[in-house]
Every structure is written in C-alpha cells, then in structure tokens.
C-alpha cells in the first residue's frame, strides 16, 4: 500500500480515454447519417410540455434539502478518514480502537444534531 506509484492508475485513465475514443465516433456517425432539418425553429426550443417556454431554465432555484449537502461536505471527508483506520485495523494494537470509537461517537453525535436541525427547519 505504501509507496504505490501514481503510474499504477494509468490503466484507469487509459480505460477512461478508450471509452471516450470509442464513444465519440458513435455521436459523430450519428450526426453524419441522421437527418438534420432546421426548417422549424420551434423544434429547438427547450421542453415545456407543448407550451412556448417562459422564463429561464437556469434560475435561482432553492431546493429545500440543502442542509443535507452541507452535511455531506463535512461527513464525506470523515467517512473517508475512517478508511485510514479500517484498513490497518488488523496491524495496530487494540488500544488504538478506543480513540476511534470516540471519533465515531463525535461523528455520530454531530450527524444526529445536524439531522435534527435539518428536520426542524424544513426549509432554508
């Protein structure tokens, strides 16, 4: 695990690039063989259920569940941090688990508090 080269991940990048290289031609071929009629400008309007679109598609739009995203920013990092401990659990002494339990307790408590807050104010 230690001292792993970044070059080991090159295959992932290769896979990513191969998929792009293999799929972009599909779009290009599709563009080549499919009909392209620009006769009707209504065709290019955004979907508005058969009505003429009103207003902007990209607006100030507030989703009420915003606290969850804020929580994610914090707890995602913490969850990943747990992996540093989890992957070496078999090698470290058992006493090292105690601070981790404390950390888990803090994380759990904080999460419960955040959930309570987000549930109390339904809307931000």
């Amino acid at each position: 695990m230690v001292g792993e080269l970044a070059g080991n991940y090159s295959t992932v990048v290769l896979m990513f690039g191969f998929a792009m290289a293999a799929m972009a031609p599909a779009l290009v071929i599709s563009r080549m063989i499919s009909p392209r009629k620009k006769s009707n400008p209504v065709k290019f309007l955004p979907m508005e259920c058969g009505q003429v679109p009103t207003g902007e598609g990209r607006t100030h739009f507030m989703m009420q569940y915003y606290p969850y995203i804020l929580m994610f920013v914090v707890f995602d990092v913490m969850a990943i941090f747990l992996y540093a401990w989890g992957s070496v659990l078999l090698e470290v002494p058992k006493i090292a688990t105690l601070p981790m339990l404390g950390f888990l307790a803090i994380m759990f408590g904080a999460m419960a508090f955040a959930l309570y807050q987000s549930g109390r104010r339904r809307i931000w």
Partner: peptide
C-alpha cells in the same frame, strides 16, 4: 405553507412549470 415560504423575496426563486398538455403526468390538461 411551510414557514420558510413566508420569506420576503421568495418570489424571485419561484419557477413556473407547465405540467401538460404534453406531459407524461398530466393527461389532456394543463
């Protein structure tokens, strides 16, 4: 209404959606 909707400038973020007549969830109405 949920309490937060009573905010002062709430109008600015209200989006008007036409559900129908060509919508999978409306039937022949809007």
């Amino acid at each position: 209404l949920p309490p937060g909707l009573a905010l002062r400038k709430v109008d600015e973020r209200i989006m008007t959606l036409n559900v129908g007549p060509q919508h999978p969830g409306s039937g022949h109405m809007r």
